[in-house]
Each structure stands twice: as structure tokens, then as C-alpha cells.
Design a protein around this nucleic acid. Structure first.
Length: 136
DNA sequence: GCCAACGTTGGC
DNA sequence: GCCAACGTTGGC
């Protein structure tokens, strides 16, 4: 089982929106590296939802409920992908970017190393540290 | 509001 | 194929 992290601007789509809908098509990814990660997602993989912008924190957890399929909003001659994710939980203690940066075990996260990537895998130990920090 | 990092585009 | 110009993302 793999852990992932996806970024979203809560002003356009937030974790609470996902909570309200239960399940959502995660589309609009227009970056090859991110696309390749979407392709590797498996059913049941856990997905951390990160809020960029004002909040800058890992807000909660979702789960892959549908593996990669053509992004319905891209032209058929393009090869962009989307997945489906299902809401799991909102962290009572969101893990802020600041905390992540000041935690030695997390400083090699792709979130830090590649600040612009919007879909990325996490190491198991990184995921566990974040879950601990979120007091899940 | 600014700027760094990064991706994309287009001229050569 | 290189590189300058430009656009976007996202932290500060």
C-alpha cells in the first residue's frame, strides 16, 4: 500500500468539499511527472490532501477509489489522466508546512524538494510521521 | 506584492 | 538543439 500526497488550493477545491461529496474525480493535473504518479495509484492507496495558499498544511486523508482513466476534461488526443478519491478524514491537528520543514524525518519529502509538484508519493516512514503529528 | 523555481513556447 | 521570454505555482 502506497501513500500519496495531492495538493489543492482550498479556495477552488478543499478537503471539506471532498467531505461533502464523499467521492470526487481528481482531474486537471497538467504535469507529466504528476500524471505518471496518478497512473501508479492503486485502489485503497491512501492520499494525503494538502492545502496550499493560506493554510499550507496537510489537512486530512483520502483513499484512491478509482484508478487512472483519461481526464474527462482534456481533449481526446491528449493523454492526461484523472483518478477518483474518496474522503476518509479531516485531521483534528493539520500538519503545517512549517512543522514539516522543522521535522528532520520529513525534510527529504518531495513536497519540500519539489515545491511545485502537485501529485507525489510519500515514503512509508514519512507517512507514519505525518500521521503521528496529526495525532491520528 | 514579490520572487524563486519550474515548465512551455518560439525564434534562431 | 539552445536559450530568452513568458506564464504559473506557491511560499514568504
Amino acid at each position: 500500500m502506497q501513500y500519496w500526497l495531492v495538493k489543492t488550493e482550498p479556495e477552488s477545491y478543499s478537503l471539506s468539499d471532498l467531505k461533502g461529496h464523499g467521492e470526487e474525480i481528481w482531474d486537471g493535473v497538467r504535469n507529466f511527472q504528476a500524471r505518471n504518479f496518478l497512473e501508479k495509484m492503486n485502489l485503497g492507496d491512501k492520499v494525503f490532501v494538502y492545502h496550499s495558499g493560506k493554510q499550507k498544511a496537510v489537512a486530512g486523508l483520502a483513499e484512491v477509489s478509482g484508478t487512472a482513466f483519461p481526464d474527462p476534461n482534456s481533449n481526446s488526443d491528449e493523454k492526461w489522466l484523472a483518478v477518483k478519491i474518496k474522503y476518509l478524514k479531516t485531521f483534528e491537528y493539520p500538519v503545517s508546512l512549517k512543522e514539516i520543514k522543522s521535522t528532520a524525518a520529513l525534510t527529504n519529502m518531495m513536497l519540500i524538494k519539489q515545491s511545485r509538484l502537485s501529485v507525489m508519493p510519500l515514503q512509508d516512514d514519512e507517512a507514519k510521521v505525518i500521521l503521528t503529528m496529526a495525532k491520528v
